[in-house]
Amino acid sequence: MSASDQRVSVREVADPEGMHELGIELGNVLRAGDLVILTGPLGAGKTTLTRGIGEGMQVRGPVQSPTFVLARTHPSLVSGPSLVHVDAYRLADAAELDDLDLDFDGAVVVAEWGAGLVETRDAWIEIVIERRRGADEAEEAAEPDWSEAPVESRTVTITMTGSRWAEETL
């Protein structure tokens, strides 16, 4: 793919509610055959974004992390495509993803930790979620008090690759 086949959008997302809203926005434009690759550290908001996608697509929920089952399918409630939510963390390569026999053509596939698994697709969206790291993070990591963890904004970079995304506005 050439650079002209890619469109990049960068957004600042203030909080989990904003991440969910971004997901709803994405869910409203996704259609059968779309692949969304999510990248970001633990706790970045990948599953929160996917919950929003599911809400925007109007699929049966709840949408939750598929960590222990590798993939969950959420059927549409409105005759649209299903949402297949994949946790690719434990998959070694695209061949293992293929072994899951996912419906890439008839569903929307959202793959957390899926970078590097898109070689066989013509078009996809890659979303990289980054959070700021404070100067005192190493000290805080030693004894975290999760009940008082601050809500940190995220930088979300959305790269749309392929002709499917040439005209779409996000």
Results as ranks from 00 to 15, higher is better:
141 A>P: 11
120 T>P: 03
98 D>F: 03
113 W>T: 00
98 D>I: 01
119 E>H: 14
118 V>W: 11
103 D>G: 06
121 R>M: 14
130 E>D: 15
121 R>H: 08
134 G>K: 11
127 I>M: 07
122 D>C: 03
129 I>G: 07
115 A>E: 14
125 I>W: 09
106 G>F: 02
140 E>P: 01
139 E>I: 05
124 W>S: 00
117 L>K: 00
109 V>P: 01
128 V>D: 12
134 G>I: 07
125 I>M: 15
96 E>W: 07
96 E>H: 06
105 D>W: 09
100 L>N: 10
111 A>C: 12
99 D>I: 04
139 E>K: 07
116 G>H: 14
104 F>G: 09
117 L>R: 01
133 R>I: 15
105 D>N: 13
129 I>H: 00
140 E>Y: 12
141 A>N: 11
132 R>P: 00
127 I>T: 12
114 G>A: 02
135 A>S: 15
107 A>Q: 07
132 R>E: 12
115 A>S: 12
119 E>A: 15
107 A>C: 13
108 V>F: 05
138 A>D: 14
123 A>N: 15
117 L>S: 00
109 V>G: 03
131 R>F: 03
126 E>A: 01
128 V>Q: 11
124 W>Y: 14
139 E>P: 05
137 E>P: 01
126 E>S: 08
105 D>K: 12
98 D>Q: 11
135 A>Y: 05
129 I>Q: 02
138 A>W: 00
113 W>E: 00
103 D>K: 09
122 D>A: 03
108 V>D: 04
140 E>A: 10
115 A>D: 14
134 G>F: 11
121 R>E: 14
111 A>T: 04
131 R>N: 08
112 E>R: 01
